Simulated scan of single mutants.
Amino acid sequence: MIVALLNQKGGVGKTTLALHLAGEWARLGKRVTLIDADPQGSALDWSEQRAKERLPRLFGIIGLARDTLHREAPEIARDVDHVVIDGPPRVASLMRSALLAADLALVPAQPSPFDGWASGETLKLIEEARIFRPELAARFVLNRCAARTVIAREIAAALADHEPPVLASSIGQRVIFADAARTGRLAGELEEAGPATREIIALTAEVARIAR
C-alpha cells in the first residue's frame, strides 16, 4: 500500500505523522520505505539525526522530491509492504504526482476552521487525481488537537459528513512529538506506553483497515 500525507498548508504535521506511521508498521514487522517528497527534507534530517545518535534503522528513507514520483513510487512499493510519502507544502506538481501514486491520501489538519479552509486546494487536487485513479481513497486526519476542547469537537462534527471523511483516530498536541523529531526518535521509543504511542497505534490500525 502507498499512503501519501498531503496538505498545501505547511505546519500541519505531515512529517511527524509520516514518520510515526512508518515506524509503527515497522514495529509490526512490515517492510516500509518512507519517501521524503518535501524539498525541505525534514524526514531525511530526522534520519540523519537518528544515525548521529547511533540508533538502529527502523525503515528506509529516500529523498524523491520530483514530479516523476507517480512512476517511481510503485516501483519502490514492489519490494516492500508499505510506502509512506511525506508530501510537500505548496508544490502542486509534486502533490499531483504523489496522488497519482497513492492508494490512500491522508490530509492532516489541525482543529481550526482556518486549516479546513486552507485544505481546499488539496481537495481539488484529490478530485483531479480521481479522474485518472477513481479508486484513490482519502481521509482527513485531525492532528495536534486537544480532544476535549469545544473547537476540536466542532471541527470533527463538521467533517463527519464531509468528503473526504475524517478518521475516527486523532493525534493530540503533545511535546513528545517535538522531542522525538529533535532526537531522531519516535514517540514510542521515548514513552512506550504513553498516550502519544497509543494514538499512533490506533491511527495505524485504522489506516490498515481502510486499505483492506
Rank of each mutant, 00 (worst) to 15 (best):
G87N: 04
R90P: 01
V91C: 00
V91I: 10
A92W: 05
A92G: 11
S93I: 01
M95K: 00
R96S: 12
S97D: 03
L99R: 09
A101M: 04
D103K: 05
P108V: 02
P108T: 03
A109E: 00
A109T: 07
P113I: 10
G116S: 02
G116L: 14
S119V: 05
G120N: 13
E121L: 11
L123A: 00
I126Q: 10
E127A: 12
E127H: 12
E127Q: 14
E127G: 03
A129E: 02
R130H: 14
F132H: 14
R133N: 14
E135S: 15
E135Y: 03
A138F: 09
A138N: 11
R139W: 10
R139M: 04
F140D: 03
L142E: 09
N143I: 09
R144C: 06
C145E: 09
A147Y: 02
T149D: 06
V150K: 09
I151R: 02
I151K: 00
A152L: 02
A152V: 04
R153T: 01
E154Y: 02
E154K: 09
A156Y: 04
A156V: 10
A157H: 11
A158C: 02
A158N: 12
A158L: 12
L159T: 03
H162N: 12
H162C: 05
H162P: 04
P164H: 01
P164L: 00
P165Y: 00
P165E: 07
V166P: 01
A168H: 14
S169L: 02
I171Q: 11
R174E: 01
R174M: 07
R174V: 06
I176E: 08
A180Y: 13
A181K: 06
G184Y: 11
R185S: 08
R185C: 03
L186I: 03
G188Y: 11
E189R: 06
L190W: 09
E191K: 12
E192F: 05
